[in-house]
Design a protein around this nucleic acid. Structure first.
Lengths: 199, 199
DNA sequence: ACCTGAACACCGTTCAAGT
DNA sequence: ACCTGAACACCGTTCAAGT
């Protein structure tokens, strides 16, 4: 939908407005269609004007990742300690899978956004509550994070399909979505906790 | 002696030649630089000529993924059964991390290549050898595969870096590469095997 | 019949010219 | 001083014209 405002009181261009427009474009037509021309059109301005507020498309995607990280969940203290960690990861999975561009934008970015710090802190607290040391907690965080990204990317595949709609391989259908990730995530956490903690 | 090809010594264009050239371009300058123009230049032909053998760039990436899958490892029967599964995954990780474009080309593709069938069969054999049923083996395969993709994508990040070379976040450095993946993979497999096998 | 230069419709980015 | 239309250098893809 087009943010159409009378030219007189159209708000001044800003990074926030650009990011919001980019988000709207990505939500509705996907990350590949997120072009600076489209963002400019959504804002009713010229494409060159965007460069007054952002360095380039790379930075815009970074800002999008930052914006996304603002909504990362926190642990629920009402839950028993053992359940907090898996529940938090499940919550993050639910949040990220609501935006098909989320995993892509995260994977394309080199670093974790600073806005993710509260989430990670919350995660480390949960890890400490079940007896993990800081190093083990970080390693586990990285492991589940990578697992999550893998599942998200396979949930929203976008790529070179083979000819026709042929099924991948006979008998290869596996349950996807929330359930599959949660099962794998719990197995991974179990494996970490049952392990002799060699770290 | 008579030269069979009436043309110059340049061999006829074919899908295989195109894929080989694409692979060489991706290996040396990365997946983003893998343009049809560059592949054509590498082959000394016009870009339009490629379309005689491939449908479009999407298909070329698919062929690249197929070519990659041809080199997937198989289980080592000399190993004790318990070790075959982790060793096979470690071997796949080593193979894929040798090409920085590998994870990207796999993630962009919608389906697993048919050329990966021997690898997956080998994997399922290993799973059966440690007492996993077919459904559990498939679920586990999917889980470790997604974990692997996550690690590979973070090993070869290419994206919107934040301003300057600032470290991600203080104290956030975690060991990457082979070790980190292997640790996580073994934890995941342990978690699956120690689990009460609710599948 | 087979191939391909040149064109087309995009893209990110820049800059001289507008206000 | 601020903004932006138009241009530039790319990209994937197509097609009429070459051989």
């Amino acid at each position: 939908m087009r943010v159409v405002t009378p030219e007189a009181n159209r708000p001044r261009l800003s990074r926030d407005l650009i990011v919001a427009a980019a988000r709207s474009v990505a939500d509705s037509t996907g990350l590949d269609s997120l072009t600076l021309r489209e963002v400019a059109r959504e804002l009713g301005t010229g494409q060159a004007s965007l460069y007054r507020h952002i360095a380039d498309r790379r930075e815009l995607l970074g800002l999008l990742a930052d914006d996304l990280a603002l909504g990362f969940p926190l642990a629920d203290p009402a839950l028993p300690p053992r359940e907090r960690l898996p529940a938090l990861w499940q919550s993050l999975h639910g949040y990220l899978s609501r935006h098909r561009w989320a995993a892509r934008v995260i994977v394309d970015g080199e670093h974790t956004s600073r806005n993710a710090v509260p989430f990670v802190d919350s995660l480390l607290d949960c890890s400490a509550a079940v007896g993990m040391g800081p190093a083990l907690a970080m390693r586990t965080y990285q492991a589940v994070y990578n697992l999550l990204l893998g599942y998200l990317l396979n949930e929203h595949p976008m790529g070179h399909d083979r000819e026709g709609g042929q099924r991948p391989l006979p008998g290869w259908h596996v349950a996807g979505g929330q359930d599959a990730f949660c099962w794998a995530m719990r197995c991974l956490l179990d494996g970490v906790l049952e392990g002799r903690g060699d770290l």
